[in-house]
Amino acid sequence: MMPTFKLTIGFDGTKFSGWQVQPDRRTVQGAIQDTWQKITGEAVHVTASSRTDAGVHALGQVVGVSSATHLDAEQLHRALNALLPVDVIVKGVEMVTNDFHATYNAIGKRYRYRIYNSRCRPLFERDMVWHVPQMLDTEAMHQAAHVLVGTHDFASFQSAGSERESTVRTISAIEVQRGSGEQGALVEVDVEGNGFLYNMVRIIVGSLVEIGMSRRDKAWLAAALKACDRRQAGRTAPPQGLCLMRVDY
């Protein structure tokens, strides 16, 4: 049986059409598979913990690959980072048991969504944040988010196009924080849970921004959750603010 390797990777998703290989499109999966083939001569299929959308970033994406290569984890780590495009980096490579599956073995994930909350639009971070010019009440957002913590049916927070057998998920923590000093325009929303539906974090953030703008209140968020109806929740926040921070196994 071929050895199985677990890769922890980061990437800037700005110029990628998402994770999954697509014809004539630049994807993260395609970049890793092409680079692996250059190094080992093998055409492999790599599996990720999450299939991120176009424009979404990662600091802790986890990838699994079975390979007949005779290179060890350290050699693969060095070779991958030498040949991968500049917007993908391998943070670690380790050999794991053959029953490891990057998707199915994951028991938790942590996402961070970054909002640039200032009348002046961002320059250097424009591909990494959602620019919201209207001042947000981050304390109201933080307090309202507690309604979503726990095990619930999150059908109201799933976009069409990737329906799952169950829309029940558990969120263990949500934090909304504003930076201080020179970082005062930066608002970060951290969401941690055992799994996420399609666009779930982005819809949560879009809904919290409605509350931060004083257009909605906590009671509305609770009602939207209970409704199990996508039309009752807020907008889907744009992709560039989202980053997969960590995957737990």
Results as ranks from 00 to 15, higher is better:
residue 197 L to W: 02
residue 142 H to L: 08
residue 37 Q to L: 03
residue 99 D to F: 10
residue 38 K to A: 07
residue 107 I to Y: 10
residue 78 R to I: 14
residue 66 S to Q: 13
residue 142 H to N: 14
residue 44 V to P: 02
residue 139 E to C: 05
residue 169 R to W: 02
residue 227 A to Q: 10
residue 207 S to E: 04
residue 109 K to L: 02
residue 45 H to W: 04
residue 84 L to R: 15
residue 145 A to L: 00
residue 143 Q to K: 15
residue 195 G to M: 01
residue 13 G to T: 10
residue 118 S to D: 09
residue 95 M to P: 00
residue 15 K to N: 12
residue 153 D to T: 02
residue 127 D to L: 06
residue 222 A to L: 05
residue 99 D to L: 04
residue 24 D to S: 11
residue 237 A to V: 06
residue 121 R to S: 11
residue 39 I to D: 03
residue 199 N to Y: 13
residue 59 L to K: 10
residue 244 L to F: 01
residue 201 V to I: 05
residue 218 K to Y: 07
residue 183 Q to A: 11
residue 42 E to F: 01
residue 236 T to A: 08
residue 30 G to P: 06
residue 110 R to F: 05
residue 246 R to F: 02
residue 235 R to A: 12
residue 149 V to Q: 12
residue 27 T to V: 07
residue 21 V to W: 15
residue 211 I to W: 15
residue 171 I to V: 10
residue 96 V to A: 10
residue 154 F to K: 02
residue 101 H to E: 15
residue 67 S to W: 11
residue 29 Q to P: 07
residue 145 A to P: 04
residue 20 Q to V: 11
residue 234 G to Y: 06
residue 107 I to T: 15
residue 140 A to H: 01
residue 26 R to K: 12
residue 177 Q to P: 00
residue 113 Y to W: 08
residue 31 A to P: 04
residue 226 K to A: 15
residue 110 R to S: 11
residue 150 G to H: 04
residue 229 D to W: 09
residue 26 R to L: 15
residue 144 A to G: 02
residue 222 A to Y: 00
residue 18 G to P: 14
residue 122 P to R: 09
residue 243 C to G: 05
residue 102 A to E: 02
residue 16 F to N: 04
residue 53 D to F: 06
residue 110 R to A: 10
residue 141 M to W: 03
residue 131 H to V: 15
residue 62 V to R: 00
residue 43 A to Y: 15
residue 153 D to P: 01
residue 83 L to M: 10
residue 234 G to R: 04
residue 52 T to S: 01
residue 90 V to A: 09
residue 122 P to Q: 14
residue 92 G to H: 10
residue 200 M to K: 06
residue 36 W to R: 09
residue 107 I to A: 15
